[in-house]
Amino acid sequence: MKKEENSKGNRYGMVIDLDKCTGCGLCTVACASENNISVLYDESDKTRNIAWLQIYTITNGKDFPDTEVVYIPRPCMQCDNPPCVSVCPPTATRKDPNTGIISQIYSRCVGCRYCMAACPYHARSFNWFDPSFPEGMDRYLSPEVSPRMRGVVEKCTFCHHRLMRARSKAYAEGRRELKEDEYIPACAEACPTQAISFGDLNNPEHQVSQLIKSPHAFRLLERLGTEPKVYYLSAKNWVRRMADNYLAGELS
């Protein structure tokens, strides 16, 4: 597997502090309303609904009253070595070499779902149904994000339209470089406890670059070599162990 680290340009990444995450679900709601995500009558069907940012619950498995609950918000990991990109037959998903963001072209996707089979994070959702918005709710749709049609795969884009918005603003002001807080995805912006930080991992001055150096930083399924750009933080050892598979007796 060849590694495609983009050393030059930007490498946008996210750090989610699980010790701060309260599982309130605001990131999911912010994401859904920012990105025109459709809703099913039965949203309890997590295997069929559209969720760019899904929250998982983990517990330490201890009996009452020593139980601890931790929430893991899971956007697209925007892997540096994405398992999904090389498998896509019609080149509908690509990694932007200048930002590291994995894009998805809905109008080109043929719906073969091979990328979903490739992604171990379940970060991709397939439109099993025609996009549905309850009656009258198409009135809140944002023109910045095109609604998806039935039969295509969609996923978190790190709110790519916000990058576009920030860039055009910067260009209009004659700047080439974006400031750290100019481009933030909706989830990071909405997080009320500021558990989600976002920035350029290639820029040592950005907060995310410093946060990932923490001994508490980890990524999901690091062993598979997907090189996610979404990092997590937790001071709890059991949480860090829960992020990847370990053989019995193996120390984390």
Partner: peptide, 21 residues
Amino acid sequence: HGAVCPLGMAGLQVLYNEGIR
């Protein structure tokens, strides 16, 4: 100071939902 609850953020679905108004 910038924080809202999920219901507040989903407020447009209260406003625009024709089926409940």
